[in-house]
Design a binder for these strands. Sequence first.
DNA 1: GTTAGCCTCAAACAAGCGTTTGATTCAGCC
DNA 2: GGCTGAATCAAACGCTTGTTTGAGGCTAAC
Lengths: 207, 207
Amino acid sequence: MTTHHFSTKDRILSAAEALFARQGFAATSLRQVTSRADVNIAAVNYHFGSKENLVNEVFRRRMDQMSEERLAALKVACCERPGELEPVLAAFVEPALAMAQDRHGGADFVRVIARAYAESNDGLRKFLSDRYGHVLREFAKAITGCVEGLGKEDLYWRLDFLAGALVYAMSDFGLIKRPSGTSESSHRQRAAAALIRFASAGFKATN
Amino acid sequence: MTTHHFSTKDRILSAAEALFARQGFAATSLRQVTSRADVNIAAVNYHFGSKENLVNEVFRRRMDQMSEERLAALKVACCERPGELEPVLAAFVEPALAMAQDRHGGADFVRVIARAYAESNDGLRKFLSDRYGHVLREFAKAITGCVEGLGKEDLYWRLDFLAGALVYAMSDFGLIKRPSGTSESSHRQRAAAALIRFASAGFKATN
DNA sequence: GTTAGCCTCAAACAAGCGTTTGATTCAGCC
DNA sequence: GGCTGAATCAAACGCTTGTTTGAGGCTAAC
C-alpha cells in the first residue's frame, strides 16, 4: 500500500524537473532526485537506463505538448486576425506562459528549457533543434507576412532576441524580482504582455 | 625554466574561463582546469582558496573592465547626444561586443556570462548583483530620461529583455548560424546593430 | 500452490570530486 | 652560508557521484 497518487516513473520525472530547474543538470545528483521522489536510488536506472536518458525524458514529457499548442494558436491567430503581428507573437509567448502557470511543475519546466539552451549538452541542443525547429520556421513565415520589408537576416536575429528575452523573463533570471504582493501567475502575465509589446515594436523597427 | 608566458594564476583563470564557457561551472572539475593550465591540482586552492572563489575571480578579471567601459560610453552618449536612446543602448551593447571580439578569451567570457544567468548559483548572483548592480541602475536612469512616460516596472522588464537578448545573441545560442562567408567579427557587429534597433523600438513602445 | 514477471530494496562498486597535507624547490635578503 | 617565505609538487584525505548487484516482495496466470 502506497499513499502516492502517481507512478514511480512520474514521481521521478517531476522531482528531476524541479531539481534541474533549480540547480541545472550537472549539479543535480540522482540521490537528490530519488530522495525527493521518495523512491529508491536504483529506480532511476531501472526505469530510465541512465541519467542522460532521464534528462531527455523530462523534455519529451512536456515539449511536444507546448509545440502543438504554439502551432495551434498560430493557426488561429493567422485565421482570425490575419496580417496582425501581436497575435502571432502571443501565439508564441502564451503557451510558454501557460506552461509556466501549470500547477503540476510547468513553471519548473520553463526554467529547464532555459538551462537546456545554456548547457551545450551537445546532444541535447541538437535534439531540440531537430525535433522542434519546424515550429520556429512556421513562426518565421507568419511574422514575415505581418511585417513589410523585413529581410530574412533581420527576421532571424529578431526571433533570436525574442526567444532570449522570453526564456530569461519566464525563468526569473533577470533583475526583476516579483513583489511580494503579487501572485506568481499575475507576475508572469505582466511579463508576457510587456514582452509582446516590446517585441512587436522591435519587429516593426525599420532599418 | 618555464616556457609559459603567463603566471600560474592567469593560466588557471584562462583555462577555467574556457572550460566554464564550454561546460558550465558544475560540470567542470578542477582537475580539468589544472590539466589544461598545465598546473598542479593544489595550485587552485593555494591561489584562490576554493572553486567557488575561482569562479568569482574569473568574473572579476573581465567584468570590472567591461563595466567601466559601459559607464564611460554612457557618459559620452549622454553628453554628446542627450535625449537620444540609441546611443545609450549602444553604450550598453557595444562593450559586450568588444569583449566578445577580444582575441584573448573574451568570446569565452561572454558565454560564461550566459551560464551565470542560467546556472543561477546563488553565491555568484549575489556577488554579481553587489558588485555590478550600480551599472544597471545608471543605465536605467539614462533610459528613463530618453523615453517619456515609461513606468518603472516596464523599464525594468525591458531591461531584462535587453539583457536576455544580448546574452543570447552574443553567445550564439540561437538559431542564427554565422554564414561561412562572413567573419565572426562582422557577424557580431551585425547582431549588435540589429539588437540596438530592435531594443530601441521596444523601449519606445507605448502601453 | 506454483510459477513468471515486474518492481523495489539495501548494499556495494569503481571512479571522480574538492580539498588538505607535508615535503621540496627556489629566489631574495641579512 | 643560513634563513625566510612564496610557490609547486605528488600523494592522500573523506566524501559523493552514477551505476550495478542480488535478494526478495508482490500480483496475476495457470
